[in-house]
Amino acid sequence: MKQTEPLAFQDLILTLHRYWGDQGCAILQPYDIEVGAGTLHPATVLRALGKKPWKAAYVQPSRRPGDGRYGENPNRLQHYYQYQVILKPNPDDLQDLYLNSLKAIGIDPKLHDIRFVEDDWENPTVGAWGLGWEVWCDGMEVTQFTYFQGVGGIEVDVVSGELTYGLERLAMYVQGVDNVYDLKFTKEGVTYGEVFLENERQQSQANFHGYDVEGLKRRFEDMVGEVERLLAMRGPQDQALVLPAYDQVLKASHLFNLMDARGAIAVAERQSYIGRIRDLCKACALAWVEQERAAA
């Protein structure tokens, strides 16, 4: 497939939606809670557990408070988009499906250098790990390609294939742009900067200097309490309230990231915070697996 004109940012997303929709994925919308990575969306973390097949794709804004650069760095953002695909179990030809998705967005592997470079993926805050690769396009990591081996501290029953595309990077690549803010968001010429530059400036200031550390700590503790309370409650079908409990884990995780950006987490505390989030996540994961087993 030959692109006459490079895809605009939104057309890149629409092309991927169409492509993965055609592969049978449910095209979901972004989760409405701040997360540090698209993986944390319950459509990936929780659905990767248990035996039920599942195929989904969605865009997820990623919030990395510590990565903000006040809009001054052409490559770093504290808010950016990931395109997330999960296929469970992973199909045999997942690599080919993936490479075809690159062709769909205009990357010709005979012209560019596509490489699968070892990457043992791990997300300690949700106790998830897998093996796979960083996919490089001309030296740039454009996708994380992972075969999930464990989630929430539990070894998976069925292996999911997970693809995480870095959308801004891909778009910069496809459009040949050196500065993220110069990306064409729409074909008509609205730029990424017009949409997000002011957001980066304000959010960076707030992330590094604005938020009240004591308030963040207090809210973190509140969220932790909520997870425990919700998991202990029972819903109308006598189920644990895993989904709302998991929402609170995500909020706690984001509060931790904000504290970290504010420089409020000492090295010694870091492990303990991460450990607490991981334990909460594991409690949710166990409850989720238990629910699926009970329903089966």
């Binding site: 012209l111 250098d113 740039m140």
Partner: peptide, 18 residues
Amino acid sequence: NVEATDGGRALAAGNSRV
């Protein structure tokens, strides 16, 4: 990993940008 059809121009430029 490839001998690009354009002699590697696009590829070199991409790597430079990265």
